[in-house]
Design a protein around this nucleic acid. Sequence first.
DNA 1: TATAGTCATAGAGGATTATCTATGGTGTAA
DNA 2: TTACACCATAGATAATCCTCTATGACTATA
Lengths: 320, 320
Amino acid sequence: MKVRQLTFRLLQVYADVVRTGSITATANRLHLTQPTVSQQLKRLREIVGEPIVRQVEGRVVPTEVGQALYQLSQDLLSRTDVFSQYLDEYNRGGRGHFSIGLVNTAQYVLPRLLGPFSQANPQVDVTVEIGNRQQMLNRFERHEDDLYVFSHPPSEANVMAAPFLSNPLVVVGPENSRWANVKDLTMESLKDERFLLREPGSATRHTFDAWLYSAGIELRATQQIASNEAIRLAVASGMGLAVLSRHVVADSPKGVQELPLQGFPLKSRWHFVVRRERRLPPAAYRFLSFVQAWLALEFNEPEGELAVAELLRTLDTERR
Amino acid sequence: MKVRQLTFRLLQVYADVVRTGSITATANRLHLTQPTVSQQLKRLREIVGEPIVRQVEGRVVPTEVGQALYQLSQDLLSRTDVFSQYLDEYNRGGRGHFSIGLVNTAQYVLPRLLGPFSQANPQVDVTVEIGNRQQMLNRFERHEDDLYVFSHPPSEANVMAAPFLSNPLVVVGPENSRWANVKDLTMESLKDERFLLREPGSATRHTFDAWLYSAGIELRATQQIASNEAIRLAVASGMGLAVLSRHVVADSPKGVQELPLQGFPLKSRWHFVVRRERRLPPAAYRFLSFVQAWLALEFNEPEGELAVAELLRTLDTERR
DNA sequence: TATAGTCATAGAGGATTATCTATGGTGTAA
DNA sequence: TTACACCATAGATAATCCTCTATGACTATA
């Protein structure tokens, strides 16, 4: 058999001829003329190298080989159909895979979005990558993920960012800290306190450093700890103060409390970041849509909802 | 997905690209140029409507959709391959089906050919139709079978017949018949005996009738019985004499014996009969080849072997 | 035995495909 | 950085395919 020349079209036509038992009927059903169908059959016979139909009492009936061919056709066509359905589902975003890269702090919030999404879309497989800002930037450079969450989006051309959720940075101290009820508390008063800081690659650290710099303040004592969670525990045990995302504290606030420092909370927002040139997997698109709806319902973040909507609109116009 | 335009060739090329991870390598393996393969991929992508490969560190790797497509390709190609193998086997005659129509007497001999053949070709499915001459002629007219065995082939144009086995018709009487040892026994002596005859549609009857007519003899008493077996039993129980194929008697000779009548045995031969315009199934062809060999080995019928060889040769030249 | 329906074949057009050579871009590795 | 390997694109050509109309052959039914 000359497999190379075999076409799915031929199989489709052939299968219909076998079903209807008539060349003319198939021609009508498929909006072709009768000679066209005849010729398709002829070509298929040449490909197979063997007669596949013959006429019996005015009906077109498959030969023995033809029957085997018919079964093959049905088999192949239905499998192709399954794939086609998979494709549709994939394009609808209800199936498939995407990966999302998170900066550390975002891991305290994103599960609240990813959880419901996965529940609603069990066929979607999400890979979550977590690291500090610098690590995520590296992944971003290498195009390793489909979607990123940054506090400060990399300022590159062809990058789109949607600030979807506020990420207030607050100063925290241990429970019953002596600064807790001080009025008009300023950084000046705290500069002799020991501050527990994230490592330099971290976004939280970066933001705080920038603020300190612009305020012209230099800290006396600092200690570097690479995990928000470790910092929270250290603060609780009285090792010092720290600047953390309010979400980190809100998540399990035991042993620490927010201090009412002037100028705080520092405002920052998490951004969804995507590359313009990279085609976003439909599942990721669907996730963004999901987030948009969820923001309004659960997070009361109308601005974020708008930003995501805008992002989706841009993605829409870019992919066709 | 545009299934209509999908080709097996495209899938073959694509599958090879995925396996090798290189367009150039595939081009070499398939004896194509690199741009050709590139374009095939492009076309396949257009058919699928989705990117199917991308480049990662110099290698061509399938996307998520591409992986699903690869699996599909493997699946479809291997199934097609199975069909292709079936086709080969079918053409070799080692697989498939044919039907053979036998006149009654032949059923005493043909099992000795069909049995070994089926044993040697377990994948071949044979339908055996049995009837008297007239019934077989009807089937023959309607093209109902692939192959026939007649004593007297229908004299039609486009019919080929190969006399493959002698079918001597003998006169039989009961064991210890008083005619058994008579010298120079003639029909004249027997014309008062009762003869048990097959029905008029039967070939045996027809041959005997013709012989009687040419010999100018008319029988006194006859009785018609539609089965060779029943006739044999009736003869054994002394109801009369009969003309039967020697094969019928040889098969289980109890209670009857051949009478040494002058002019007997009447010579006749069984013929394989096929229509010229009908393409013989390869399995039937293989059966004829088998018979040819078997005739020499087991039946000592060199003439038959030659006739079958001649038939096969003609069939060979007619089908290409 | 007409007649209507069904299929095969011939001929022709335009569209699509398969394949090539030549060339340019891009990323990898020395 | 340079060189090389690899892939994409453009342009061209011959083959093939798809589809049509026209027509002839066969078959079953009225």
